[in-house]
């Protein structure tokens, strides 16, 4: 098992490196440069531009810049923002905690709720609950995320005034301890609800079709032929076999969530990496962007490793 985990880790490091290379190349291929932002539109002095380019090492070929960046990373330094002159680690560290909290809660809750719905619907295909779940999940699946977020704000924040529409804490409230936690949870409801409504349908459908497929497998027919109760067949045999594809989809869903959460964060003014990333893209703030991407890809890679390990524990056919 240890060997299996190490192998997966090595592969993950390789993947992250590859992603970094691609990101670095793509960012530098895009037109524009952070120097444009710093000197502003009114100043077109070529000497100043050249001097600034040299200061930030942007005059070197991309490949040299890349290796310089990797070398810096190996020393544990993510560099500093070109525009704000703040260390990247400082800029995104606290923001990342907010993003992670939102993404992780959404991923786990979506898995649990979606799988439970899928199992319920799969056990009684064509039943009332199956129909209700199927239609609602198709509806929510078809909605654009930012639009759904705005509609929820209109309903729950503007009209009903039940929930706050933005931020993570009540401004100027200065809560501490348990009150603070409650305040954060209160602010998290709407962004979390949006993410859940968007992610649950995927789990629902994966689980339902998996339950239906396993239910028609020959080994389930064999167990029925032995006179075993449907309850026992379902709890021990259908469930374990049906949950495997759902575990796989958790890894992929996590990747989508990490990437897709930015838009939701911006709509709800959630103090996560979303806004930082958008600003960095607009300003071509390379070190900040690379920092955000690095942490995102490490998170996705780690999730995949966890998924692989869980899968290996559940399915004996995976050799390690």
């Amino acid at each position: 098992m240890l060997k299996y985990v190490l192998k997966k880790l090595a592969f993950a490091v390789f993947t992250v490196l590859l992603v970094m290379t691609l990101n670095f190349t793509l960012i530098h291929l895009a037109p524009g440069s952070p120097v444009d932002i710093i000197i502003g539109p009114d100043n077109q002095d070529p000497a100043l531009r050249a001097a600034l380019m040299e200061t930030y090492g942007l005059d070197k070929p991309v490949i040299v810049q890349f290796f310089r960046y990797i070398g810096q990373l190996l020393h544990g330094n993510m560099g500093s923002s070109i525009v704000f002159h703040t260390p990247v680690a400082e800029m995104i560290g606290s923001k990342f905690a907010a993003t992670f909290m939102l993404v992780f809660t959404a991923a786990v809750l979506a898995l649990i709720i979606g799988a439970a719905m899928g199992i319920t619907a799969g056990r009684k295909e064509g039943g009332f609950l199956d129909k209700v779940f199927s239609y609602t999940s198709y509806t929510f699946n078809a909605m654009p995320s930012f639009w759904l977020a705005l509609m929820l704000i209109i309903l729950f924040a503007t009209t009903l005034r039940w929930l706050p529409s933005s931020g993570m804490v009540t401004p100027r409230a200065k809560f501490t301890g348990f009150r603070y936690t409650l305040d954060v949870l209160y602010h998290m409801v709407l962004p979390l609800l949006t993410l859940l409504l968007l992610r649950i349908p995927g789990y629902f459908r994966t689980t339902k079709s998996s339950v239906l497929q396993v239910n028609s497998e020959d080994y389930i027919t064999t167990l029925r032929a032995t006179g075993m109760s449907e309850k026992k067949i379902f709890r021990k045999y259908v469930l374990k076999n049906a949950i495997l594809p759902v575990v796989t989809s958790f890894g992929m869903s996590m990747a989508f969530l990490i990437a897709g959460v930015s838009l939701i964060e911006i709509v709800f003014a959630w103090p996560g990496t979303g806004r930082v990333m958008l600003t960095a893209i607009n300003q071509r703030d390379y070190p900040v962007l690379m920092g955000v991407y690095l942490i995102m890809s490490i998170m996705v890679a780690l999730t995949m490793i966890v998924v692989d390990i869980v899968y290996a524990i559940l399915d004996p056919r995976i050799r390690y």
Partner: peptide, 16 residues
């Protein structure tokens, strides 16, 4: 009354 099915590879749950 018991029965033996054709596809034996599939007659048992693969994960138990």
């Amino acid at each position: 009354i018991s029965v033996v099915f054709q596809k034996a590879m599939n007659s048992f749950s693969p994960v138990h």
